[in-house]
Design a protein around this nucleic acid. Structure first.
Lengths: 203, 203
DNA sequence: GTCTATAGAAGGATAGAC
DNA sequence: GTCTATCCTTCTATAGAC
């Protein structure tokens, strides 16, 4: 693979990423991707054979990028509450730079659930529970957290940071009416969500 | 309009609703809708001229149906906490019968934000605040609820009930690994979310 | 109001020259 | 590796018969 190939290939991937995130798999056009990459349509096929293959490449790359960002949460030497804070700040910061990601991922997975199959190997919620539980055995006595409710808690935490972005257009317009901007709202949200969850879980 | 027209027209609308919610605007096919309605493709155009017009009809009908369901929350003669409980039970019950709705609405609005313009006339968050505040003036002293944080609270409440459905395919697969079904999870969620929010907001 | 047939356009994909 | 030209299918939409 020459240096030139690499350039073109990554330009394509970048352009494809933009278009797929904006329009979704069904709404995206190969012509549009080619234009943004500054190349010809047939060159897309030369590198990625089909639209489907190009999409899958973008999809997996995007998911990996997102998951990798949060692996460190567990490794950190932090108290339980600090981990919650750390998560919301990291997660929301990341989403701020990838606003369309939540809506894109949720939607494409719902339309084509098989995409979850590969993904499931990477998401290990029970390991997350085991790790957290081991790391904070004593601390957790101060909270209402048990194995049975853990899924409810996880979904709630994810919801609180993902939803504002998934509903970006709705939320931002409602905020506008209130005289607040989305960016300001999101900046406050890091602390709000942190406190919200901690208070909700504390005994 | 004859009785026959009405039958066909509503059969089309029902079929279109199914297909659009499953596939989205871009993924939906007029042929598919015609087949499900048990009619010919050109008859769709006879009734709704264009795919776009058919989609808009379905979209607005769906939104209205959803909004109407929750107008009664404010009218009820309930305490503040009972209203939160009432909302989560009603909302989640409704979504249980319309699982694809959250993902569909969020996505179509993000793809085409102009759809929000008409919608905004119907969503009056500041009125909601005024009404709630007037109804529970004394009660609210026991909670951390002020006008400034109201959007954060609203978005959080919406997130907690909408997100599990918006992320249906992800959530249900993760639950599967934990040995729980989605239905069971959702049934528990009504109370979980209620308690979660109340605890988080209480002083 | 409903159907058949078909126009017309768009989009994904390939062949072949350079 | 990159481009031009073009094929082939799919899809929306319309014309016209009944």
């Amino acid at each position: 693979m020459t240096e030139n190939d690499k350039q073109t290939e990554s330009r394509i991937l970048e352009a494809a990423s933009e278009v797929f995130l904006e329009k979704g798999m069904d709404g995206a056009r190969m012509q549009d991707i080619a234009d943004r990459a500054g190349i010809n349509k047939s060159l897309l096929h030369y590198y990625y054979r089909t639209k489907d293959h190009l999409f899958n490449t973008v999809f997996e790359k995007t998911v990996n990028q997102m998951l990798m960002r949060f692996a460190p949460v567990l490794d950190q030497d932090l108290t339980f509450e600090e981990k919650i804070r750390f998560f919301f700040h990291e997660h929301i910061d990341f989403l701020m730079n990838n606003r369309r990601l939540p809506s894109f991922l949720l939607n494409e997975i719902n339309r084509n659930p098989e995409r979850m199959t590969k993904l499931m190997e990477k998401i290990e919620v029970h390991k997350l529970w085991d790790t957290l539980h081991a790391q904070h055995k004593k601390e957790l006595n101060a909270y209402n957290i048990n194995r049975e409710d853990f899924p409810q808690i996880m979904v709630s935490v994810a919801a609180l940071s993902l939803f504002p972005f998934a509903g970006f257009e709705i939320v931002s317009r409602i905020l506008e009416k209130h005289g607040t901007g989305f960016d300001e709202f999101i900046e406050k949200r890091k602390d709000f969500a942190t406190q919200f969850v901690i208070k909700a879980l504390k005994k």
